[in-house]
Simulated scan of single mutants.
Amino acid sequence: MSNAPLARLVEQGAALLLESSDSARLDAQVLLCHVLGKELSYLHTWPEKIIADEVFVHFIRLLERRQNGEPVAYITGIKEFWSLPLKVSPATLIPRPDTEVLVEQVLACHQQNKLNCLDLGTGTGAIALALASEQPGWQLDAVDFNIDAVALARENARQLKLERVKIYQSDWFKQVAKDKKFEVIVSNPPYIDGGDKHLSEGDVRFEPETALVAAENGLADIITIATGAKDYLADGGSLYFEHGFEQGLAVRKILTGLGYTDAKTTKDFAGNDRITQANWIINKLKN
């Protein structure tokens, strides 16, 4: 196998991953390109190229890690989100395509050139940095309670030249300035129930449980954030959550029960409930 051309290495690597991955061929391609330091197009341009023995050994080691279930993003240290290459680590969740639906919703609903936005539980910084890349006039704060995640998000901001995003450590709102108001607050908080069987399957086995699991059937952090956000939202401001595919109704009820208006849920790319948003109208409480 070490003397095989790149095209053969991809096929043989994919065969090794068939039982451990739903995207075996793509995983093999990404891992091979990672050890080569090349883009995916390189494999199509040079399918007959033979790699050095030490590169082959490195490739095999990465395939073995993937066979054991370790996510490709943790192996390579990089995950693309909103066309931005983000550094990832086991300190953070791996950014997922469905979270791009949240970014799309915010951008579609808020087209003003200037506003204040807060990203709670930023992890890699994916949501805040995606928004910053599209709206250079927005002021974005991004917080996480995990100091390692904060360091990683700051590094991503530096790499992407989006350092105007203010990234700092905070347990939800605790370190956010008391007098600050935001037109938009977004969060992809922990929303999985601790007894969910999916926690022992696939990539999530390697991701930090504190970023995945919440009490009260996965709704505890959503309740905490929705309650606290009322003190930080500007009049008419909007709150956005990513949540589990069966939680749309529950999240709308939480928001409506707390006095939010116009709660609605948007589906992800697979057609499942994924993003719920609502507005906070201060003046209506005075009428």
Rank of each mutant, 00 (worst) to 15 (best):
D27T: 10
L62C: 03
N156A: 07
V10I: 15
V101Y: 00
F241R: 12
K49P: 02
S133G: 13
G236S: 08
Y232I: 08
G248H: 01
L219T: 13
G125R: 00
F145N: 14
G194D: 08
R66V: 09
E48K: 14
A263P: 15
K180I: 10
G194E: 11
L26K: 07
L140M: 09
L26N: 04
N3S: 14
L249G: 04
Q67L: 12
L9K: 09
P71D: 07
L140W: 01
D148K: 12
F56A: 12
D98P: 11
V103C: 09
K38A: 15
A153D: 05
A128P: 12
T124L: 04
I127Y: 01
V35C: 03
A220Q: 15
L63K: 04
A211H: 05
E70K: 09
C33W: 02
I192P: 07
N272G: 01
S200F: 03
E39L: 13
F245D: 13
G218F: 04
G121D: 05
L233N: 05
G195L: 05
T276V: 11
A108E: 11
I94N: 12
P97N: 02
W46V: 12
I167H: 04
A263L: 01
T224R: 15
L249P: 00
G237M: 03
A229M: 06
W280R: 10
L199R: 06
Q169I: 04
Q159P: 06
